[in-house]
Design a protein around this nucleic acid. Structure first.
Lengths: 251, 251
DNA sequence: CGCCAGAATTAACCTGCATCATCACGATTG
DNA sequence: CAATCGTGATGATGCAGGTTAATTCTGGCG
């Protein structure tokens, strides 16, 4: 079951058995990829999309000076470049961060699905809109938070998403990325990220060591980053405890 | 024809006559709105979406201190909160910036369209993905550009979009927003935006006065903001001249 | 015509983060 | 085993942009 984590725990759109089976049938191949492998470049015409099964992937935009801004980080269960199906070409590059396993879904299959299973098509649409929602949270992060807040917000987000994927217990998780990656995510320099991590460590909020993240005070970390998980559209029943805002708790 | 500008000049997805007529029929009412009117709040359950016919609208996320980060600015022809149809609730607020005219489309109508006209449904999906693409360009802007670059990038973007909507000649356009709005868009303070505008004026790149924008050197402005319009998915035939990158020119 | 509110402008001061440089540690390679 | 490289850690210095506050400018309106 390669699609096991896709849309798992997402509010009101869990897949029907038939839909899941149809998606499984749509997979043409399963690949393992090396770390730091680019699988799609901006402007290329794409004829397939990529469902991430294992590992961490990223999407990024390069600037004139070779610096890059990450615009998305993907965890297992994410349909990384599903938006390439309606868009046909992308505005950014797509790459693995760690070693990864991915399932390839030809656009021709998605085409058939949109014609034959409109309810499933709607769920695919929904999945791409969650990515957009995460983009907006990242805009908030870059536009309104200071360095410590940005890192705290990102770590709280990735923790929530990994909990949802069954890959974090809410306090500890493996995240095979470096401080330099964190810098490209948060719009900072790697030097300053290092100082931020020290501060988070000294405040006993969070420890990041050799790609293992340990969150000591989840609520305090979320509060420091003004993190409110509602933009992730995770089903409330499963994870009422991730918020820094009481109003998001189980009602 | 309220849908006249919707998906106009968008690469490969112009509407068929029947599709446009179907969309027109889906409109339940047309409203005029005051400036600075909030029409949807984060978390509310929505049962309709809003097509912007005239005026400028925005979407924004508030922070703890009452500061806000704009995550989108909309021009006539944009289906402002179409993503509320699959998502049902939004992660942000939606408001007018200027006085505006909007067409209301009930989600029940969109529901019918997805069942009966899958090709049109795909184009609606496409429209929401352009918004996501713009989000990514904004992430690049906030993460990698300095203050002057951010403002230059935004003004170049909004110019390109208004050209596409037939509301700018490529050099001059009305944009009923203040410097404080610009600050909320670019993640700056209004004081600093003022400094930036003076610099752009002194460098004779762009003049912004009482909500009228005049771009003196479009190419230089785009270059200063590293603006490459390909993320807008505008049909190349119509606007090959907006880029700062030769490779985006008419081929 | 004077009044007023919102917007733009400018100045003085301060700070968060970039920049540049160096060093330590562990893993990988020849 | 030395050499190299990737990653993390830390100090010194400078500047872009934030903060605060005061002063115009502008358009609308009685």
């Amino acid at each position: 079951m390669f699609t096991e984590r896709f849309l798992r725990d997402k509010r009101g759109v869990s897949l029907e058995l038939a839909e899941r089976q149809r998606l499984e049938r749509a997979i043409s191949e399963v690949l393992t990829l090396e770390p730091r492998t680019t699988i799609a470049r901006a402007g290329e015409r794409l004829h397939q999309s990529t469902l991430l099964i294992e590992g961490i992937m990223s999407r990024y935009i390069d600037d004139r000076n070779g610096l890059r801004q990450l615009v998305a980080v993907h965890v297992p269960g994410d349909f990384v470049d599903l938006h390439a199906f309606p868009l046909q070409t992308l505005d950014h590059d797509v790459a693995t961060m760690t070693a990864a396993t991915v399932a390839i879904v030809p656009h021709a299959e998605l085409e058939t699905i949109t014609l034959e299973m409109p309810a499933l098509a709607r769920k695919l649409w929904f999945a791409t809109l969650i990515d957009a929602s995460i983009h907006r949270a990242w805009l908030f992060r870059l536009g309104r938070l200071d360095a410590v807040g940005r890192v705290a917000h990102f770590l709280a987000e990735i923790n929530a998403r990994l909990v949802s994927a069954g890959l974090s217990d809410g306090r500890r998780f493996a995240l095979g990325i470096t401080q330099a990656d964190l810098a490209e995510i948060c719009g900072l320099t790697n030097v300053h990220v290092n100082r931020v991590m020290r501060q988070l460590r000294e405040e006993r909020l969070c420890v990041f060591r050799s790609s293992l993240v340990e969150i000591l005070k989840p609520e305090a970390l979320a509060a420091r980053g003004q993190f409110d998980p509602s933009y992730l559209y995770i089903d409330d029943r499963t994870h009422a405890s991730l918020s820094s805002h009481p109003r998001s708790a189980l009602s």
